[in-house]
């Protein structure tokens, strides 16, 4: 494993077996991860995208020593994730977030103190460090309030505070902004950026494409347990057919019109979607040669025809990749 790698995953497979039915005799087998390969460089933010049930949380839990792999190798900070789990646990942080996972009847300070002791943070540094992380997540004002009085956003901040308490070298964040209001989500993203500036490696799973686009220089898309793409945002855009997207809306299109659009220079993909009586055709333009006027000329005679051009978003890329995998 190269020195600049924080995470290296090779041929990772995870199978869940469960029993159901009368006397639990019916055995079900679910392959949650099917030969995952990825590397994450130290001091970077790596984004993992994927639909519900793709295996993101399973992968995060394996990387953070909370789940054993069925096969394959996982090395974190050049240590094997199963054999060296206890060593690794002092060097990684995990934020699963949500309403659960905190002692609600005691205050934030006491929650953090408990986990500081479990991590063996020296008593001489403990209280200072607790104050520092509370300051960092902007919870000093509520530090002495019981967690049961916290809003969802405050709990999320406390989860993050706990995750960074022992100054981990790698922080795993599983959908850290889910359910947060826009202000809290923005503050969380700011915090994530500041952690990277401090040299922390971030492994982030998210559903929000703009978040990945804003934070992650490199993202992987996980679909049905497989990494279907792993590249820079620009690399992913070019992979799905270009940086430019054209959207055409009208009250229905004929097949021959769609075929003609497909034949325009640089157009790599045309996908149709219905919006009530309206139909939208989304096209990826690989070369930037096709102009909106050319499209209007081709589709002459359509009342209420609208043609827009925009930059291909990560969401477009993501949807293309996930749909491709589904087919």
């Amino acid at each position: 494993m190269s020195d600049d790698l924080a995470i290296e995953v090779k041929d990772l497979v995870r199978v869940f077996e469960s029993r159901k039915g009368f006397f639990y005799r019916e055995k079900t087998r679910t392959e949650a991860l099917k030969g995952v390969q990825l590397v994450v460089r130290r001091g970077t933010i790596f984004g993992l995208l994927g639909p519900n049930g793709a295996g993101k949380t399973t992968l995060t839990k394996i990387l953070s020593t909370l789940l054993l792999p069925t096969s394959g190798t996982v090395r974190i900070l050049d240590h094997e994730v199963v054999e060296d789990a206890h060593w690794l646990r002092s060097r990684i942080g995990l934020v699963l977030g949500g309403e659960r996972g905190l002692y609600n009847r005691i205050n934030a300070k006491e929650n953090l103190r408990y986990f500081a002791d479990l991590y063996g943070i020296p008593p001489s540094e403990r209280d200072h460090r607790i104050a520092e992380v509370l300051e960092r997540v902007d919870l000093v004002w509520a530090a002495d309030r019981r967690v049961e009085e916290y809003s969802r956003g405050m709990k999320q901040k406390l989860h993050i505070a706990r995750g960074i308490l022992h100054r981990p070298e790698i922080l795993f964040l599983d959908e850290p902004t889910i359910g947060l209001d826009p202000k809290s989500a923005r503050e969380t993203r700011k915090l994530i950026r500041s952690l990277v500036a401090d040299g922390v490696t971030i492994f982030l799973t998210t559903h929000y494409m703009f978040e990945a686009e804003e934070l992650c220089p490199r993202v992987a898309v996980l679909s049905k347990g497989r990494i279907v793409a792993n590249d820079t945002i620009a690399g992913l855009r070019s992979r799905v057919g270009g940086d430019r997207t054209l959207e055409v809306e009208a009250y229905g299109f004929e097949d021959r019109e769609v075929d003609r659009l497909r034949g325009l220079p640089g157009i790599s993909k045309v996908v149709g979607e219905d919006f009530g009586p309206l139909m939208r055709l989304t096209m990826r333009d690989r070369t930037g040669e096709t102009t909106p006027d050319q499209i209007r000329d081709l589709l002459v005679g359509h009342p209420e025809l609208s043609v827009r051009e925009r930059r291909t978003s990560l969401e477009d890329v993501y949807l293309d990749l996930v749909e491709e995998e589904a087919r």
């Binding site: 002092s90 060097r91 408990y114 002791d117 100054r167």
Partner: peptide, 29 residues
């Protein structure tokens, strides 16, 4: 650099912290 010490060093503190937490939760409920 992580602030966490080795698991061996933190065992007694973990037991102490767990005892303290149990008392806090008892008093709080």
């Amino acid at each position: 650099m992580t602030l966490a010490t080795s698991p061996d060093a933190s065992r007694a503190r973990a037991t102490g912290a767990s005892l303290r937490l149990a008392i806090l939760l008892f008093v709080a409920d």
